[in-house]
Amino acid sequence: MTVELATANGAGARHELTDAEIERLLAPKPAWTRADVRRSIAIAAVSSIVFVGAAAFLLGRSSGWEAVRAAFFSWPDFKAAFPKVLQGFALNFKIFMIAEPIILAIGLLLAVIRSGRSPVFFPARAAAITFIDIFRGAPSLLVVLTLGFGVPALRISGVPNTTVFWGSVAVILTSSAYQAEVFRAGIDSVHASQRAAARSLGLSNMQALRYVVLPQAVRRVIPPTLSGFVALQKETALISVLGPLEATRQAQIYASLNFNFTSYLVAGLLFIAFTIPLARFTDYLLARAAQRETVGGAV
């Protein structure tokens, strides 16, 4: 466009653009021309064929491929294992649905306690920090085993003694510690002047937190929180070590009864199918946040 104008006016002389030229300049341009699209598709197709072809060639040439295919990618076993594993996955989903709101509540509570500064709440703050340090530091599997096998043996009256219950508690405690740190990062990211403005209007410390700081903090940590959702959904598989018949456990049972591991593939695909929508939604929120923060920027 620029070159064209320059030659039309001789030796690239600068001149006031005419109305027609300005109109052409401002005319909406398609981001992609048809030629661009065709070229991209062609390149993607060629590279995919080369990549998949090379992978298939290497796999097919390996001596163990036939055995692996029979053990992991058997269609009849896939069909046979699917109903049981899906039934198990329903338990994972149920644990997720019950645990996540509790995790959000405990995480927020811990973060609020931890970000307080009043000396009155020193014991609460110390307890919150200890909690977070322990459950973020200890391997999840260890927490699941300890609570799942240890606590039911205590036979505490009034609480369920099932492994599902205590396994879920273990997962909730671990995830809450992580979620607390996510919320704390959000709270710390709200500038101190916001709190000062709220306090100068006569709002109490708690009111400033509730109406001014937390709404902004929570909004900022929605993407990492959704990431936590995805992680939690996977963590529910850890409960399988305690015995409850969730997806991983069902897959294990099928595998040991039939000497075929395709059931693991079924379980894996179910977890992935569940987490992909969450992952894409997180991407969407992150992209939207990035767009909002770079208003007017092209890069």
């Binding site: 002047s193 403005a197 209007l201 709404p215 902004q216």
Partner: peptide, 13 residues
């Protein structure tokens, strides 16, 4: 006692 700040400090949300 009202206080108005140099950087406005309105609540953005």
């Amino acid at each position: 006692i009202g206080l108005v700040f140099q950087s406005y400090n309105l609540f953005p949300h």
